[in-house]
Structure formats: C-alpha cells, structure tokens
Design a protein around this nucleic acid. Sequence first.
DNA 1: ATGTCAGCCATACACTGTATGGCTGCTGCT
DNA 2: AGCAGCAGCCATACAGTGTATGGCTGACAT
Lengths: 208, 208
Amino acid sequence: MATTGQAAGGRGDARLTERGIYTAALRLIDADGVGALSMRKLAGVLGVNPMSLYHHVPNKAALLRGVKNLVAAQFQPRVDGGTWQEQLGRFARDFRALAHRHPNLIVHSLGSPDFIEPEDPFWTGLTDILDSAGVPAAEVAPVGAVLTSLFSGFLLAEGNGALGRLAAMQPAPAKAASTAAAGVGADSDSSFEFAVQTLVAGLEARLS
Amino acid sequence: MATTGQAAGGRGDARLTERGIYTAALRLIDADGVGALSMRKLAGVLGVNPMSLYHHVPNKAALLRGVKNLVAAQFQPRVDGGTWQEQLGRFARDFRALAHRHPNLIVHSLGSPDFIEPEDPFWTGLTDILDSAGVPAAEVAPVGAVLTSLFSGFLLAEGNGALGRLAAMQPAPAKAASTAAAGVGADSDSSFEFAVQTLVAGLEARLS
DNA sequence: ATGTCAGCCATACACTGTATGGCTGCTGCT
DNA sequence: AGCAGCAGCCATACAGTGTATGGCTGACAT
C-alpha cells in the first residue's frame, strides 16, 4: 500500500482526473443530493486528500458546473421528422427522461442562473425546432427563453415533489370522483403530458 | 445600557419577537440574498446573541419558511370581474409584482418543495379562477399544480437572470433586426406577457 | 416568600470551503 | 547524463456555518 492509500475508492483510477472527479461527484449527488456533497466526502470516496481536488477544479461552484455539463452532454435530442408540435413533444420528453436519471442534480441546477450554456445541444435543438415552427428569426431566442423557463419550472416542481403535493390537494368539497373532460390525472406522467400539450397549444395560438 | 446591548439594531424592539425576527431576516435577504443570511448576522443586526433566536424559531429552515409566509401573506389577489382569461392574467401580474418586491427570497423559495402551502390565498385564488373557467372539479388541483409549476419556472428564471441571458442569445446569424410577427421582445415585461398569453391560450385550447 | 419558567447568553462541537506552503517524482532541455 | 522546473498531492490552518448544552436572571403565579 506504500504511502498513498488510494485503495478501491475512485473507480480504480490511481490518477486523479477532472472527469473522474465529476463522475464520482455525480454518484454522490445521485445518492444523497447536492446538499450532502462536500469536498471532504468527495475526496474520501476518491481516496484522496480534499485539497488535491483543487488541482483539477477551481472551487465547488465549478465542480457543480462540471457535473452538470457531464450529464448535459448525455442529452442527444432526436430531431427527426414530424410536425414541429411532435418534435417539441419529443424534445420535452427526452429532456424529462434525462432529468429523471439524475433528479437531485437537476433540481439543484434548475435553480441556478447558468443552467443553460450557449453551446448546449439543448439550446440549439430547441431553437432549431422553433425556427422550423415558423417563429421569426429575431424572436427565436426570446420565445425559446420563455419556453425553457416554463418547462424548467415543471421539471423542478416534479423533481422536488411540489407538483405532486399540489396536484393531490383538496379535490374540491362537492363531487370528488368525476373524471370528466380534459383528461388530467394527478400522476406525474399525465401532468407532464398536460403541460406539454398546453405549451404547444399556446404556442400554436400565438403563431397564427 | 445596563447588561443587554440591544441598541438601535432591532428596529427599536427591546423584546425579541418571532415576527421581528422574520422582518429583520427579510431585510437582510432583500439586501444580500438568502445565501448571505446567517443566524449570527441576523442576531447581530438584532443586537442579540445568536442562540437567542432559537427560543423563537426552531431552526434555519423554519426561519426561511416564516419569512416566506410573511411575504406570502401580503399577496391579496383581486379576483373581481372579467373573463377567466382576464382574471388569470391579473392574478399572474399580481403575483409577479410581489415577486419583484423580494426577488432574492422568491428565487430561493421557488426552488423549495414547500413553497405553496395548502391554505395560501394563492392556491385558493387560483383554484377559484380555474373553477370559474369550467375546469372539472376533480381536475382543478392537477391543472392548478401544472400551471403553478410552469409559472414558477418563469418567475424563477426571471429572478435569477436566466431568462434574460437566454433571451439575449444569438439572434440567429442571418437577419438580426427584423421585428416581425408575434411581438416578443427580449425585455422581461414582454417575455412575461408572452408567457401568460401562451399559458392562457394553451389552457383555452385544452378546455374546448 | 418561594418555586417555576421564559428569555437570554456563553461555550463548545462538528462541519463547511479553501488559502498557504511543503514534499516528491516525472518531465523536457541542454 | 544531469539538472531545472513543475504538476500533483498532502498537512495544516483559518474563518465561518448551524446548533446542542447548560447556566444565569428576572418576572410572575401561588
């Protein structure tokens, strides 16, 4: 074991890597949330001194950005054919699937201003769809910004449980079990579909 | 000055009050953000020992909830006449106005699961409007939850600057200065109007 | 008059992010 | 081959965090 006690902590990497740090941090975040992530715990998992991390990452904020970018890079929207409505729906679904894989990270990242970076495939994919929907070039960015904000709100609320709590609230005193017209259940999936269809329909109306 | 050095810190209150603690905390939050709020700083402003706060507030999380409830109580939506579309618009505008008065608090609270409490005038006001819009009773809660989530996302993005950053992004390489059809500028106000009208139009479409 | 307790305070603990500086072994240059 | 430099790692230390524990004081009810 010599002097360095690296052991079996860091995925078998003897050397410390920026990438390795991010993936280890992601595992910790997935397990216990970003609130429970500390430089010391992360270093412990990697079998390394806390200060060693600072030779690969300038500070904790940058570490979180790095982790976020790591999972953001996994987002490959499939912008094949179909109407722009279908494309937008697929896009939203893909993004939500990614969010579901790392809910803790997403809930934290969506609250930060720098969530979306200029060159993200997310942003370019969205602007492409809006462009093909006929949104004037000068308005693609503002419209995309609004849609992103709204949709982020949904994912955030779904991720932290606020959506579920609200949806389960007082089903009105009078009649309780009348599953009537619009077709929205209290479960996450139908809430999601409702949100997407509302946004799409709203955009449709604003474009004609 | 005797033994207690309260001085002119706590707004002149000699005795420490739960309410007084909340308002002092709110001032600190408005000034420097919730990240800069610490029990010690708060106690300092109130001219009091940090541990004294714990006789009125169980912990910091509860303190933040209390501050949030303090400003939430200021929200009195005017649900007078008009179509439900107009009511919803007014409602959103009123809520945004409140958010603008305490942006730092709102940006933090919107990221927390317990932002909306069951008996908030916010929730009852919204459900009333949805009810009068013809949303089936059993779906008022789910629909309200989705709308709240979406709208919260907008306010969050507006508050933390993400909205502005995204809206100002690459106006498409080709033509830059053609202020065409749909009427969305990059400024916050027109983004807000666009968001509200999109949501209203989307809901309209989903209800017919 | 006395016991009780609310309100306040002092101390202390575990924990956070990170600045500073020292050691070591690999690197490229001469 | 030898040597300078530096990347990578570590130990120590500092300021700051939330809060548990226990002691003091003065008012108030009995």
